[in-house]
Computed example of a mutant assay.
Amino acid sequence: MIIEIAAEGGFGGIAAASVTKRIDLDQQGARMRQEFCDAFEPDELARLASQPCTTCADRMTYRITLTDDRQQSRIFTIREDQLPPEMLDLIDQM
């Protein structure tokens, strides 16, 4: 599976630089691969994306694209406050 993350946003009307990250889990060790697969499970991303976000003004927005072995992609748009800290840490590791 390939995980691609495009992050953009701003604060106080000042746009932050956009960031794009990509990781091919087939090229990672078993522990890291499992950690990312567990955290970026499609049903969990869909659940996070569907949660209301009342404190999301002026926060980062993450567009997370998951591409499986059959080259089928799913895209999720999630705001920074909707992501658990552990997932933000994994994004930072990418």
Rank of each mutant, 00 (worst) to 15 (best):
I2W: 05
I2R: 12
E4G: 10
A6L: 12
A7L: 09
A7H: 00
E8A: 15
E8T: 14
G9F: 10
F11L: 09
F11W: 13
F11M: 12
G12E: 10
G13A: 04
G13F: 03
S18V: 05
T20F: 09
K21M: 07
D24A: 12
D24F: 09
D24R: 12
L25Q: 02
L25N: 02
D26K: 08
D26V: 00
Q27C: 07
Q27M: 09
Q28L: 07
R31C: 07
R31V: 15
M32K: 14
R33L: 10
R33M: 12
Q34E: 13
Q34N: 09
Q34I: 05
Q34Y: 02
E35I: 05
E35C: 08
E35W: 07
E35M: 11
F36M: 10
D38F: 03
A39H: 13
A39E: 14
E41F: 10
P42C: 13
D43G: 13
A46K: 14
L48A: 06
Q51E: 15
P52H: 10
C53R: 03
T54K: 13
T54R: 15
T54P: 10
T55P: 01
C56K: 08
D58I: 04
D58A: 07
M60D: 11
T65H: 09
T67M: 04
T67F: 01
D68E: 02
Q71W: 04
Q71L: 09
Q72L: 06
Q72N: 07
S73E: 01
F76G: 06
F76Q: 05
F76I: 06
T77K: 09
T77L: 06
I78D: 00
R79T: 10
R79W: 07
P84C: 01
P85S: 05
E86P: 00
E86N: 02
E86Q: 03
M87N: 01
L88H: 02
L88K: 13
D89V: 03
D89M: 03
L90G: 03
I91H: 05
Q93D: 12
